[in-house]
Design a protein around this nucleic acid. Structure first.
Length: 116
DNA sequence: ATGCTGACTATGT
DNA sequence: TACATAGCCAGCA
């Protein structure tokens, strides 16, 4: 095969999704953190775009990614996904301070070398 | 090709 | 604490 072309756009995000899938239940990671782990340092925004492009049933735990302030990032359009995200996280055991901030010192995911 | 937009972040005022 | 700016980059009209 010629090798290039005919590649779904989502493929470019596979590296990002692979990292997000490794975030365990009850833990969260920041966009910048995921970017760095995916080998895309400085491209935190791209993580948000990649997650926004996910479709239902993707199996990717997108709710476990929050911003650097430990807060659920507000979406445009008021789709309500930010509320769902908070609910899902609470169900997993992630606690929010009354200011709506998740204490990253407690819930942040600390990945270990993938070794499996 | 060009211009906008968008689930980010660090830094400066 | 709040707002403004500057990088970064893919998708789409």
């Amino acid at each position: 095969m010629t090798g290039r072309r005919a590649r779904p756009a989502a493929t470019r995000y596979d590296r990002i999704y692979a990292i997000v899938r490794r975030i365990p239940r009850g833990r969260v990671a920041t966009y910048g953190q995921v970017a760095m782990l995916a080998g895309l340092p400085g491209r935190a925004r791209m993580i948000g775009y990649a997650l926004a492009a996910l479709s239902d049933g993707s199996g990717v735990p997108w709710q476990r990614v929050v911003n650097a302030q430990g807060r659920v990032s507000p979406r445009a359009g008021g789709s309500g996904h930010e509320v769902l995200q908070a609910v899902m996280l609470r169900r997993e055991g992630v606690r929010f301070r009354k200011t709506g901030v998740i204490p990253l010192a407690v819930f942040r995911w600390h990945p270990r070398l993938r070794g499996r």
